[in-house]
Design a protein around this nucleic acid. Structure first.
Lengths: 189, 189
DNA sequence: CCGCTCATGTAACAGGTTACATGATTTA
DNA sequence: TAAATCATGTAACCTGTTACATGAGCGG
């Protein structure tokens, strides 16, 4: 039951509609959690029923009416409780690692293609996170911002997202190099 | 349906029993995938039914009879197909990041406690992965091993596990430092 | 006029977690 | 003698994914 808390955490700093939430939790961003639109709409319904968030309808002229949600006192208490409770470790679960685990038994070219694709995806996220960080800290240095800024939570999680994707990219590139070298050694033989 | 392929990948290099598989996929190791024992036993049953693995009973004197599984030709073909297919990106989904996202609104001490715990967990995994890597490469250097060793797949995935946990540890420590400094700045005021 | 964005859902299914169950042997 | 290890499962439940559905306005 952590999607619940992820949604609460996302709504702490600003009122958002279900649709805006789906943008924050989608493929491109998702710097601290990932979820499908369907999950989010369902979770918002549940959260409102449980009194942890409240929505207010905002009628728009050209767009459909949307509902902006904010966290209630009960919601904040729930998050506080969640934070104090012990955290279960998170595990790697990645198709690409499974493929590399089988590297000695499957087609090298196919593997390299997958690794190349992933490296590019990681690079795109690195660029995106870099931009987000710059926007959040404004004209301050990172050190300055982390010392005195308010709302450093999103900045800190984004930093983890950034280094995670840098790790992905570097590992993909390294793995490609290793596989290519072995390919050449094998070809010469 | 990637647990399926994770199990196949794990059985490529050695015959393992269900129980031995659970050890490879459990909390301590899980360098390329994580799964519960119950999932693994269920998956093995399905894989055998589908002809992708075969088991042979090994009667033991003091221990219960176990079944050692190995991948069939059909199983290898399945893995080959899986490798060639496009890989969906993997996403972070971590309770701890949710807690840090809410950092500006929840109790700092509770957060620091969680971060400290996670840093220790990450360090334990770093030590474990370091040992595993040394065992796999024997007395060769890493470069030497990656160039000429056979079975580099598990080594490469373990390398990713290692840097992932180093990233976790470093980020936890950095985050703790930031939170502590802000705490002090706030206390002085 | 075609596809994208805004805006919100339902339903079916696949995948993962937790609780429960059994029973012998070895180690502390 | 209590706990851990070996060895294997079933059942109920919770979570996440995929497919489907609707409809208006905006940009190329």
């Amino acid at each position: 039951m952590a999607l619940r808390h992820a949604v609460l955490a996302a709504l702490l700093d600003e009122e958002l509609s279900g649709y805006q939430l789906t943008k924050a939790f989608d493929v491109g961003v998702a710097n601290f959690w990932h979820a499908q639109p369907q999950q989010l709409y369902a979770e918002l319904t549940r959260l409102e029923k449980d009194g942890l968030v409240e929505g207010r309808a905002v009628v728009q002229e050209t767009r459909p009416t949307k509902r902006l949600f904010h966290v209630t006192h009960a919601g904040l208490a729930e998050l506080e409780e969640f934070t104090a409770a012990s955290t279960k470790p998170s595990f790697i679960r990645d198709d690409l690692l499974v493929k590399v685990q089988a590297a000695d038994h499957v087609d090298t070219e196919a593997l390299i293609a997958q690794l190349t694709e992933r490296a590019a995806f990681a690079q795109a996220k690195i660029d995106l996170f870099g931009k987000l960080l710059r926007t959040m800290r404004g004209d301050r240095t990172e050190e300055e911002f982390l010392r005195h800024g308010h709302r450093i939570g999103p900045y800190l999680t984004c930093l983890r997202g950034l280094t995670f994707e840098q790790g992905n990219r570097d590992w993909c590139e390294h793995t490609i190099t290793v596989l290519r070298e072995r390919q050449q050694a094998h070809a010469r033989h």
